[in-house]
Write a protein that binds this DNA or RNA. Sequence first.
DNA 1: ATTTTGTATTAATGTATATACATATGATAT
DNA 2: ATATCATATGTATATACATTAATACAAAAT
Lengths: 99, 99
Amino acid sequence: MLDIKNGVQKLDHCASVLKAIAHPLRIAIIELLEEHEKLSVSEIHEKLGVEQAVASHHLGILKNKGVLISYRDGKNMRYELKHRQIIQIIEIMDRCSSI
Amino acid sequence: MLDIKNGVQKLDHCASVLKAIAHPLRIAIIELLEEHEKLSVSEIHEKLGVEQAVASHHLGILKNKGVLISYRDGKNMRYELKHRQIIQIIEIMDRCSSI
DNA sequence: ATTTTGTATTAATGTATATACATATGATAT
DNA sequence: ATATCATATGTATATACATTAATACAAAAT
C-alpha cells in the first residue's frame, strides 16, 4: 500500500483500518497478541472460546487490513501484530473511561 | 455510563466507540475539532463541504457514543471533543503509515 | 495413499450502517 | 405572530457486516 495519500484517501484508509479493529472479538485478539507475541489460530480459538472458523475469519479481516501479519509454521499459521503501537489505541480507549 | 465493566462489556463498549470514530467524515470532524476546539454544525458543514443534515447526523453519532459534547449557544449548537486524547488514535494510525 | 490435524473459504441469512432527501423543531429577530 | 436562520429527525433505499454451518484445502504423520 502506497505511502503517499491525499486527504480523502487518507481518511478512507484510516477509517477502514479502524473499522477492522472496531469489533469486540478482534479487540480481544489484539489484546491476546499483546501478551503473547505469536499465536496460532487454534490457540486463539481456544483462549477466546470461539469456533475455529470464527477465529480464522476475524484473523483474516485483521490481516487484510494490515493490522496483523502471518506466516506458516508447520501445519499452523502464526499471527502477530504488524505494528505493536496499535495496542495504544485500545489503551487510549480504556483511559477515556468516561466515554 | 458506568465505569466498572466486566471483560465482555468492556470489549463491546470499546468496539462501539471505535466504530463511531471509524468513518472518513467523522475522522475529518475530529481532526477539525482538534484545530478549532469548538465548532457549530454550519461551520463544520461549510469547512467539510457536506450538507447540513449530513454534518448534523454524523455529529449526532459522535455525541451519542461520547466522543463529542455539545451545548447550545444562541441559535447554534457548539460541538467539541470530550476527550482530546481521542486525537492520538488518529495520530497512531498516521504513524503506522505502512498499514 | 489415506488419515489426522490445522486452517480457510463458501453460502445463506439476518442485522446494521450509509446516503440522500424531505421535513420538522428550536431560537431569535422583526 | 411570523419569518428566518440553525439544527435535528424521519423515511426510503442501497450497501456492507456479522453470524452460522458446512465444506474445502494444506501439511504432516502413519
